[in-house]
Amino acid sequence: MASSVHSRDFDEAALRRHLEDLEWLEGVAWAHHAVIEALGAATTVLPLRLATVYLDDDRAREALDEGRAVFERLLARLEGHVEGV
């Protein structure tokens, strides 16, 4: 799952500022966690790092294609497992 974000909040300078803003970071981290939890209830997930940003959909697809073999191997390894609490 991916979502579009406004560049003014996630360009390099803004992201650097935001990552030092603990209130902003907490909100983004909880939103990221909620998505991982929701997807994890339905399927095996391999989350990207928080605040992984691609400039457009084509670049995101390229990154997925480039990492396909690694992602498939990791997803197969994780399938059927749940994170301990």
Rank of each mutant, 00 (worst) to 15 (best):
M1E: 01
V85E: 10
D56N: 15
D57Y: 10
A34V: 01
G67Q: 14
L50G: 02
G84H: 09
A31D: 14
R61D: 06
E23G: 09
G27I: 02
R59P: 01
G80I: 01
S4Q: 05
R8W: 11
E79P: 03
G67W: 06
D58I: 01
V82S: 15
V82H: 14
H6T: 12
L74K: 13
W24E: 13
G40Y: 06
R77N: 14
E72V: 02
V35S: 01
A51L: 01
A63Y: 09
G80Q: 02
L19F: 00
M1L: 06
V5Q: 05
L75M: 13
H33G: 01
G80S: 04
T44G: 03
A14W: 05
H18G: 09
E20K: 14
A51M: 06
H18I: 07
D9W: 05
L46Y: 04
E79V: 10
E83C: 03
Y54I: 03
D11H: 15
R59S: 14
R49C: 05
M1F: 00
R61L: 08
E83Q: 06
S7C: 10
P47M: 01
L55W: 15
H33V: 00
T52E: 07
I36G: 00
L15G: 11
W30F: 03
R16T: 12
R16I: 03
E37C: 08
V53Y: 07
R8K: 13
L55P: 15
D56W: 06
G67H: 12
R8V: 12
A14H: 04
S4A: 07
E12M: 10
V35D: 00
G84I: 07
S4I: 02
F10E: 00
H6L: 13
Y54E: 08
R49A: 11
E26A: 07
R61V: 11
A34S: 09
G84T: 05
G67F: 05
L39V: 08
A51F: 02
G27S: 11
G84L: 06
A38H: 07
V45I: 11
T43C: 12
R59C: 10
H6G: 12
D56C: 15
L39A: 12
T43K: 12
L78T: 06
V5S: 02
E12T: 14
V70W: 14
R59A: 15
D57Q: 07
L48Y: 08
L64N: 10
L39N: 06
T44S: 08
W24M: 09
A38M: 04
V82N: 07
R68V: 10
W24Q: 10
G67T: 10
L39R: 11
